[in-house]
Design a binder for these strands. Structure first.
Length: 220
DNA sequence: CAGTTGATTCGCT
DNA sequence: GCGAATCAACTGG
């Protein structure tokens, strides 16, 4: 069962996205990624929720305090993968966007599996299908994206990672925006900007916990 | 169905 | 040492 998964052969995807696409402004790239597909390790996911991070100028971005060994890839050319580890157990995947050195990125938050379902089911055994790609860490797990894949170039024609434009673009009226989720600097101006984008009416995008304080005091 | 809490490693100060 | 771009399990209704 080493059959190759070719999403394009199933009519699931449009043209492969090149570096010039990701090099645009991150706030333009992020909504444009909705409906696009990502293919890696035999599974194809159609993106339904993403979140933009505006590099050095963004207090919520990992790049805010300048380059570190971890975030180095963010400061490189667009179209590369930035994968980070969080909460002691989860991997999350971003695509670097914008101009070279800008260090912007789009976090892949949710989607739906549209190809390689057998492999995805195997990879996510015991988990309800709806939860396979609901949330950034689940999405990364289903696509088998971990720290090893950080820096991977998504713009190599024959590369292992592929972004494809949707066959039919998501109508603008179905794209909704909102504040970010779970970002530490939520109290600042950054929270006021709608940097999260999702496709309305998608089961894969559930009402995420609104930016709620982690702990509550017993007094008042 | 909705809300709460524990888990558990890495990166940076 | 502390906090984190989260998830899964468990609770009560």
């Amino acid at each position: 069962m080493a059959r190759e998964h070719d999403p394009t052969a199933q009519g699931l995807t449009g043209p492969r996205l090149g570096r010039d696409f990701f090099a645009e402004d991150v706030l333009d790239v992020a909504p444009a990624l909705l409906g696009c597909t990502v293919t890696h390790a035999g599974v194809t996911v159609r993106l339904t929720e993403v979140e933009a991070y505006a590099g050095l100028a963004d207090p919520g971005s990992h790049a805010f305090r300048g380059p570190t060994p971890r975030t180095e890839v963010m400061f490189g050319p667009a179209g590369h993968l930035y994968v980070y580890f969080t909460y002691g157990m989860h991997w999350c995947a971003n695509v670097v966007c914008g101009s070279d050195g800008e260090a912007s990125a789009v976090l892949l938050r949710a989607g739906e599996v549209v190809g390689g379902e057998d492999l995805a089911a195997q990879r996510r055994a015991g988990i309800p299908r709806r939860d396979w790609t609901r949330g950034p860490a689940r999405l990364a797990t289903t696509l088998a994206l971990r720290g090893d894949q950080s820096g991977l170039d998504a713009c190599m024609p024959q590369g292992p990672l592929a972004f494809h434009a949707p066959v039919e673009r998501v109508p603008a009226r179905r794209i909704r925006t909102g504040p970010r989720v779970g970002v530490a600097g939520a109290g600042g101006d950054a929270a006021a900007y709608p940097w999260r984008f999702w496709v309305d009416g998608e089961p894969s995008v559930s009402v995420y916990r609104p930016a709620k304080p982690r702990a509550r005091r017993s007094d008042t």
